[in-house]
Design a protein around this nucleic acid. Structure first.
Length: 345
DNA sequence: TCAATTTGACCGTG
DNA sequence: CACGGTCAAATTGA
């Protein structure tokens, strides 16, 4: 029986997280980033992580809060996989070419950032598959999935060999709507978008002038996630108005079709069926088309799920590598288990 | 000729 | 043993 006290505490914790995110946002907007402000950013980030960790612990400790929200019948996104429940947990494996121990071996322990997205087939581009997400993918497999009408296709980044880019994705047409695809992204792109933007460098993620947008999105996502955690009206009442539409993450549609699973429906999907851009400030668009959106979203997903960046370390178990984005280099061992409710529903 | 896709087999997990 | 994920040989296309 989730006592109201526990809920109130959780809401309060998440509210603090949101405040911290806003502070971080403000720091990132500072015109001339100084080492001091960078340090502050780091500090804020650590606090955010610690608080979210605690919040998740609270949710876990309380069975009622922990129980998943009843999927609002309207076609649960993963209904196609409902028959096989591992389809939901995507413990990803195979950390890239460096782990050439023996072929066809998978590491069960490796956990990658995993982002679930539902996209529609590009309207004009035919219904072959989801719209281009800005990266070049190479198909390496296809499987018929039990209980699903359509096979699942497996893609890896074209630059996997040349640049050791570990990113992969799985694409599966939804059962109910053939024009919709469920896309699960694993890993992060470490490759350079070679021909994409003329000489677009993704060298210094920190002090990214657009990073604050992602943080705002994160703040919005936290709001939604709170609601997802069955906090419901209490949370929404306690938090400042921030509509899901204000989440830049959801607007990453042109041409990016990537979204954070946090601010999504009850199953962690972010429905991008509506490919028409959602109302976004111009900055968000520019940023999204720049590729930085994915970077930041992935970064947060990585932070949340304890993923790491290549090149893969030789160690099998402790697989954390510092994120260059915010310098989240400590205290994430706990985070590995901290966010599964959000990323591994 | 090379790159991308297809497809059946292999492997680890539950 | 069934299933999902991956590999790699064969095939296709530019």
């Amino acid at each position: 029986m989730a006592d109201a006290v526990e809920r109130a505490r959780l809401v309060s914790e998440l509210g603090r997280v949101q405040d911290l995110v806003r502070q971080l946002d403000q720091q990132l907007q500072a015109p001339s980033p100084s080492p001091a402000s960078f340090e502050l950013c780091r500090h804020l980030a650590h606090q955010i992580v610690a608080l979210t960790d605690r919040s998740i612990g609270m949710v876990r400790a309380c069975p009622d809060l922990h129980s998943p929200p009843p999927s609002s019948g309207a076609g649960s996104p993963l209904s196609s996989d409902a028959a096989s429940d591992h389809a939901h947990h995507h413990p990803f494996s195979r950390p890239g070419p460096a782990a050439t121990v023996s072929p066809k071996k998978r590491k069960a322990t490796a956990r990658w950032t995993s982002q679930q997205v539902r996209v529609s087939a590009g309207a004009g581009a035919g219904a072959e598959g989801p719209a281009d997400d800005g990266h070049s993918w190479r198909k390496y497999g296809q499987k018929d999935i039990l209980g699903a009408k359509h096979p699942r296709a497996y893609y890896r980044c074209t630059h996997r060999n040349s640049q050791s880019c570990p990113a992969t994705k799985q694409v599966q047409r939804t059962d109910d709507d053939p024009s919709l695809f469920d896309v699960v992204y694993h890993g992060e792109h470490t490759c350079r978008p070679a021909a994409a933007g003329a000489g677009a460098k993704r060298a210094q993620p920190q002090h990214n002038p657009h990073a604050h947008a992602a943080l705002q999105g994160l703040a919005a996502s936290l709001t939604v996630a709170t609601a997802d955690a069955a906090i419901g009206a209490a949370a929404n009442a306690a938090l400042p108005p921030m509509t899901p539409e204000s989440c830049p993450v959801r607007g990453a549609s042109s041409p990016w079709s990537l979204a954070s699973p946090v601010g999504s429906d009850s199953n962690g999907w972010c429905n991008l069926q509506d490919v028409s851009p959602c109302p976004l400030p111009a900055g968000y668009r520019d940023w999204a088309s720049d590729g930085d959106l994915q970077e930041v979203v992935s970064a947060f997903a990585a932070v949340s799920s304890g993923a790491h960046l290549p090149p893969p370390p030789p160690a099998l178990d402790n697989e954390f590598v510092p994120l260059d984005c915010f310098g989240f280099d400590h205290s994430f061992n706990g985070m590995d288990a901290a966010m599964p409710g959000l990323f591994y529903p």
